[in-house]
Amino acid sequence: MNIAKYIEVIAIAIIAVAAAASMATASVPKAPVVTSADAVTTHVVYVSAKRLSAAEKVAP
């Protein structure tokens, strides 16, 4: 068996095994747990303006 003939296949197989091992042993970071509703801030924006008339909409 000529190893030089299959060196590309061997390299791809090694990379595939290394990638699979990396995915299998990777740890997933835990999401932070919010224990209180006080910790959550909600931003509210109020927009107050008068409506434009049809003439004001057409005017440049």
Rank of each mutant, 00 (worst) to 15 (best):
K5W: 04
P29V: 04
A4K: 04
I15N: 09
S22F: 15
K30S: 14
A24P: 01
A37H: 04
A31P: 02
S48Y: 01
A18I: 14
P29S: 10
K57Y: 06
S48D: 12
I15K: 06
H43M: 05
A16H: 00
A49I: 02
A59K: 07
A20F: 15
I3R: 10
N2S: 15
K30C: 00
V34L: 07
I15Q: 08
A21I: 11
S22D: 09
H43Q: 14
A19L: 15
E56M: 00
K5A: 06
N2E: 13
V44R: 05
A24H: 11
V28L: 05
V40E: 01
A39R: 07
R51V: 12
S53A: 10
A37C: 03
D38L: 02
A11N: 12
A31N: 06
V44F: 00
S48M: 06
V28K: 02
A19E: 07
A20P: 00
A21H: 09
V47E: 04
M1S: 11
V45H: 07
V33Q: 12
T25I: 08
S36A: 13
T41S: 09
T42V: 01
V17D: 02
Y46C: 04
V47P: 02
P32R: 02
V28G: 00
I12P: 00
V17P: 03
I14C: 12
T25V: 08
A21C: 09
R51Q: 11
M23V: 13
S27W: 01
K57A: 11
V9W: 09
I12H: 03
A39C: 04
A55D: 14
T35M: 05
A54I: 11
A4N: 12
I10P: 03
K5Y: 13
I7Q: 11
S22C: 09
V33H: 06
K30W: 04
M1K: 05
H43W: 07
A20T: 11
H43V: 15
P32E: 15
S36M: 07
A55M: 11
A16T: 09
P60Q: 14
A20C: 10
V28F: 07
I15A: 15
Y6S: 03
A4T: 08
E56D: 09
A54V: 08
T25K: 08
K5T: 07
K50I: 01
K57H: 04
E8Q: 03
V33C: 00
N2L: 07
V45F: 03
I12L: 15
V45L: 10
A19V: 12
I10V: 15
V9A: 13
K50W: 05
I12W: 10
E56Q: 13
V40L: 14
A4H: 12
T35H: 06
A59N: 13
M1R: 08
M23S: 10
L52S: 14
A11G: 02
V58M: 02
T41V: 12
V17Y: 15
I15M: 09
I10Y: 11
P32N: 09
T35F: 11
T35K: 08
K30A: 14
A39Y: 03
A19R: 06
S53M: 05
A16E: 02
N2C: 02
T25W: 03
T41I: 14
S48K: 05
R51S: 12
R51H: 11
V45Y: 00
V17T: 13
V40K: 05
D38M: 01
V9G: 03
V47M: 06
V34P: 00
V44S: 01
I3V: 14
N2R: 14
A59L: 12
A19Q: 07
P60T: 13
H43Y: 13
